[in-house]
């Protein structure tokens, strides 16, 4: 049974359908990548899985529980077993790196401070920021903040972790380390990972299975090898990053020349 089971998901922002009938299975112990052009709703999907947004139709089950019918406390119990790495890192700005990583431990356990310290240093060591533990969140670069957030997301040893664009803003070295780290954690700790990304090369390197989203639908799914060999023009364009092809670069709307010719001057 898959850990996350998404069936017939519909979600609207105003009149715009972000998801229009999406089915996704995320299997235990695997790294599943959700890819697609920016603005397709990858972040939205993670928020739906985490129970922060409610679908207009369809169900999302995590570990056999329907996320959106759970009570407040049941949902919070479930979230203790899910980690999420936000695009921005979402670190608490009024405390330093150490306290940020210690935050979930102190909130959810009654471990003595010495053990908290050991745990935090261990997690920080694995992301290479042990010696940055006294910096405030505002003193970190975007890439560093994301690594601290990663350390924080895994402090409670969750069953699954969702990464929102983990690779953007990383220099080549930390990018390599990060790819490695995600891979290692997945194997060593038996984590289930969901990676949202549009960095094709890095994602394809570690993902076991890839879903390609566009226009509110799953366009293609399969292992990285299968996708690379896909006959679909769309998939080929996306995987190779070609500028021309069926993937629209523009936000949907009226034709450009129409806009120029008949545009009323507004405001």
């Amino acid at each position: 049974m898959p850990l996350v089971k998404i069936r017939d998901l519909h979600f609207y922002r105003g009149n715009r359908a972000i998801f229009d009938g999406v089915n996704i299975d995320i299997h235990r112990g695997k790294i599943t990548a959700i890819m697609g052009p920016s603005g397709t709703g990858k972040t939205t999907l993670l928020r739906l899985i985490g129970g922060q947004l409610h679908p207009d139709k369809g169900t999302i089950e995590v570990d056999g529980q329907n996320v959106h019918t759970l009570s407040h406390s049941e949902l919070y119990e479930l979230r203790k077993r899910m980690g999420m790495l936000f695009q921005s890192g979402a670190l608490l700005t009024d405390i330093n790196v150490f306290d940020n990583v210690a935050f979930p431990i102190r909130e959810h356990t009654k471990l003595p401070e010495t053990m908290v310290r050991d745990l935090v240093l261990m997690k920080l060591q694995s992301v290479g920021l042990r010696c940055a533990r006294n910096l405030m969140a505002s003193e970190l670069s975007g890439g560093m903040a994301r690594r601290v957030a990663l350390a924080r997301a895994v402090t409670l040893d969750p069953m699954m972790i969702m990464y929102d664009e983990p690779f953007t803003g990383q220099d080549p070295i930390s990018m390599g380390t990060l790819v490695n780290l995600i891979h290692r954690m997945n194997d060593a700790m038996g984590l289930t990972s969901v990676i949202v990304s549009h960095d094709v090369a890095e994602t394809a390197e570690i993902a076991d299975y890839i879903y390609l989203l566009s226009g509110g639908k799953v366009i293609e799914k399969g292992s990285p090898v299968q996708l690379k060999r896909s006959s679909s023009q769309w998939v080929q364009q996306f995987m190779q990053g070609l500028p021309d092809g069926p993937v629209p670069f523009h936000y949907p709307g009226t034709d450009f020349s129409d806009d120029l010719l008949n545009g009323e001057v507004s405001a």
């Binding site: 979230r79 936000f86 670190l91 979930p104």
Partner: peptide, 22 residues
């Protein structure tokens, strides 16, 4: 408001810490 706009509140929610209570 700033905690909200920098996703700190969302982040707490996903760490299973209710920002309203915490």
């Amino acid at each position: 408001g700033l905690m909200k706009s920098t996703e700190q509140l969302s982040g707490m929610e996903m760490m299973a810490v209710d920002p309203v209570r915490r």
